[in-house]
Amino acid sequence: MTQPYELVELDAVFPTLCIDLKYASADNITGAPIYREARCLLHPDAAQALSKSIHIAALAGLRLMVYDAYRPQQAQALLWQACPNPEYVVAVDIGSNHSRGTAIDLTLMDEQGRILDMGAGFDEMHDRSHAYHPSVPPAAQRNRLLLNAIMYGGGFVGIESEWWHFELPNAASYPLLNDLFGCYAPKTITTLPL
């Protein structure tokens, strides 16, 4: 089966974009690399929105740091195995918007390349990761609001449970894609406590 469209390689189109693909390393909720290739891909519509967000961030003297974009469905299955909680990980039978190429996970960096404090880490599956959690200090809450404004200005929407996740408003209307690269099956996946 052929893909209905070609995804955009973000490092080729945006050579100055900072990319740290968490699922191509052990720095993720499974504790092991999942992606066999460190490819950062997006649907052309999402890449166009990201271009606007990059420009808006630059106007504020900030840069974006991408943690994840397109995600093979096999990787989604491994994440569901590690965290079978629909508040944070979409069940495989539904299909993640990452697997459509229409979602991106990211944060903000200052002019010196320091990641801004968001009050909770990426993939921290806890209430503190919710967009407007009262335990998040005001400075971190302002950083989250700034990230939201930058991404909204580009054409993305956020979700309530993860401050780092943004997607096109109609993300789920795009088709799920065949896996474009392989995944590792972590030898031992520890399920996170719910």
Score class of each variant (00 low, 15 high):
109 M>G: 03
38 A>P: 02
63 R>Q: 03
83 C>H: 02
50 L>E: 03
138 P>W: 13
142 R>A: 08
163 W>I: 07
187 K>M: 05
129 S>W: 11
22 K>A: 15
82 A>F: 01
94 I>F: 14
186 P>C: 13
98 H>T: 11
82 A>L: 08
188 T>A: 15
190 T>V: 12
137 P>M: 10
150 I>M: 06
155 G>D: 01
164 W>Y: 04
131 A>F: 12
14 F>A: 02
193 P>W: 11
58 A>K: 10
121 G>P: 05
14 F>E: 06
85 N>G: 14
148 N>Q: 15
133 H>I: 15
53 S>Q: 08
185 A>C: 06
152 Y>F: 13
57 A>I: 07
59 L>K: 04
23 Y>H: 09
170 N>V: 15
119 G>V: 12
54 I>G: 01
163 W>S: 01
22 K>D: 04
95 G>Y: 04
71 R>Q: 08
70 Y>M: 03
144 R>C: 12
27 D>I: 06
21 L>K: 00
136 V>C: 08
158 G>A: 13
140 A>Y: 01
16 T>C: 06
132 Y>V: 14
118 M>T: 09
48 Q>H: 10
132 Y>E: 13
187 K>R: 00
172 A>T: 11
26 A>I: 09
25 S>R: 08
19 I>E: 04
145 L>R: 11
154 G>Q: 04
170 N>Q: 05
150 I>E: 02
12 A>C: 00
179 D>T: 08
105 D>L: 04
127 D>R: 14
116 L>I: 01
100 R>C: 03
64 L>Q: 00
137 P>T: 11
172 A>V: 04
137 P>D: 15
37 E>K: 14
80 W>V: 02
26 A>S: 11
96 S>R: 08
151 M>I: 07
155 G>Q: 05
110 D>R: 03
63 R>I: 10
20 D>Q: 12
62 L>M: 14
70 Y>N: 00
191 T>M: 14
153 G>R: 07
147 L>S: 02
88 Y>P: 08
102 T>W: 02
34 I>H: 00
